[in-house]
């Protein structure tokens, strides 16, 4: 099957690499992936037209265009509205996380997370990951 395209939006470069490495190493669970990195909300807006993506993973707390605004933009967009969005948030930002879910984000992952947590959350959104033949729960 073709690689799943994932857009990772996060302003910290090592956090982005962490997510990329985890996804790329998690082939067994997530399947083949092609990760695109965006370093800010604006960068994401610029990269979205190059989609569609199979999944967007975004941080909430970013300067200028924040993760919530990105979720709303994706949900309003004809082209991307069906794209699943996975939020990355910190433990003590319940309010922001709730808002994100209310705006149409599909799930969230609290920092810190392990590569395993990330892969299983991603694979839930991608709908079955590597083996689409297997029914998912």
């Amino acid at each position: 099957m073709t690689a799943r395209r994932i857009l990772v939006v996060e302003d910290s470069v090592s956090m982005r690499s962490f997510v990329r490495n985890a996804l790329e190493a998690g082939t067994a669970e997530v399947g083949e992936v092609e990760v695109t990195e965006a370093s800010s909300g604006f960068d994401a807006l610029r990269l979205l037209p190059r989609g569609p993506y199979d999944l967007v993973i975004t941080d909430i707390n970013m300067p200028d265009v924040n993760g919530l605004e990105l979720v709303q933009f994706i949900r309003k967009s004809e082209r991307h509205k069906a794209t699943p969005v996975l939020l990355i948030s910190t433990q003590n930002s319940d309010r922001d996380r709730e808002r994100g879910l209310a705006l149409g984000a599909n799930d969230y992952l609290a920092k810190p997370f392990t590569p395993e947590n990330l892969c299983s959350a991603a694979s839930r959104q991608l709908g079955g990951g590597a083996s689409p033949a297997e029914p998912n729960g």
Binding site: S12, S14, M15, F18, N61
Partner: peptide
Amino acid sequence: RAVHTLKGLAGLF
């Protein structure tokens, strides 16, 4: 934001 990012990174690494 600086401290927030450090916290997140510290958790991951």
